[in-house]
Lab assay of single mutants.
Amino acid sequence: SASLEDVKTAVLGLLVILQTKLYTLPASHATRVYEMLVSHIQLHYKHSYTLPIASSIRLQAFDFLLLLRADSLHRLGLPNKDGVVRFSPYCVCDYMEPERGSEKKTSGPLSPPTGPPGPAPAGPAVRLGSVPYSLLFRVLLQCLKQESDWKVLKLVLGRLPESLRYKVLIFTSPCSVDQLCSALCSMLSGPKTLERLRGAPEGF
């Protein structure tokens, strides 16, 4: 439990870093931090981490990651405290083949985003970082199938509809809506759902 406290501190630090690096160059920093966060949550489900502190780590990670939004130009952003989304000039939600690297070039400044813009690109060529939603999407499927803490599952179920409104997140990387529907149906009809959940409301 003591070591998990250190892990929790590290994860919180990564969330803060991602919130900053999403809007700064090099964009590969945001890509790497995002991948680290998603990989860490995957390990929770792989090794069945069920301690309360592990659940709190997942809760905080999902609470942040499910706020990711994308505009029509595929640029990622996060809402501010007033709910207004600021889109990044440097990070996009497109999935890119590994051989192309985590970044790609664009020939010049991008068109203005639909929300308040981030800082304008400084040079004639900007390297865009790929932060594909499919990585998070796979972890969300694991959550629906394996999550043991009701608070975490409730958060994910509550945030998913709003995330799905931003269709560009889903359609720019390999996210299977069929698998999502299947996971939701299995969660509702499967007898093991109630068996594994802690803290579920009576009558769920």
Rank of each mutant, 00 (worst) to 15 (best):
K154A: 07
G83M: 06
H29L: 02
S111Q: 11
V131M: 15
A27S: 12
I41D: 00
Y45A: 00
G203V: 05
L14V: 06
P89E: 08
G108I: 13
V85E: 05
R127Y: 11
M96D: 09
V38G: 04
G108A: 13
D6E: 05
S186W: 07
L184W: 00
S186D: 14
M96Q: 10
E97N: 10
N80G: 10
G101A: 14
P113E: 15
V92D: 04
P79V: 09
Q146H: 11
H44P: 00
H74F: 04
P161C: 14
P79L: 07
T114H: 14
R69W: 01
A27R: 04
Y166F: 11
A10F: 00
Y49A: 03
F204G: 03
L78C: 11
H29N: 08
D178H: 05
S176K: 12
R159E: 03
P124L: 11
W150P: 04
P174S: 08
Y133I: 05
L135T: 12
L141R: 02
S72Y: 13
N80Y: 07
L128I: 14
R159K: 10
D82I: 07
P174H: 08
K46N: 13
W150N: 00
R159S: 05
P89K: 10
I17H: 02
A10V: 02
T50I: 09
Y45L: 00
P112A: 11
P201Q: 10
K192C: 14
E35G: 09
R69T: 06
R75G: 03
G115P: 13
V152M: 02
F171Y: 10
S102Y: 11
Y34N: 01
Q19E: 10
L153E: 01
H40D: 00
K167H: 08
V92M: 07
L78H: 06
G77Q: 03
L144Q: 00
G83H: 07
P116G: 12
S88A: 05
G129D: 05
S134H: 12
A2Q: 11
A70V: 08
V131I: 15
L4R: 07
V139Q: 07
L4G: 06
G77M: 04
I170C: 06
K81Q: 13
Q146D: 14
L68E: 02
V156C: 05
K104F: 11
L22V: 07
E99W: 10
Y45V: 00
G108F: 12
L43N: 12
L157F: 03
L164C: 02
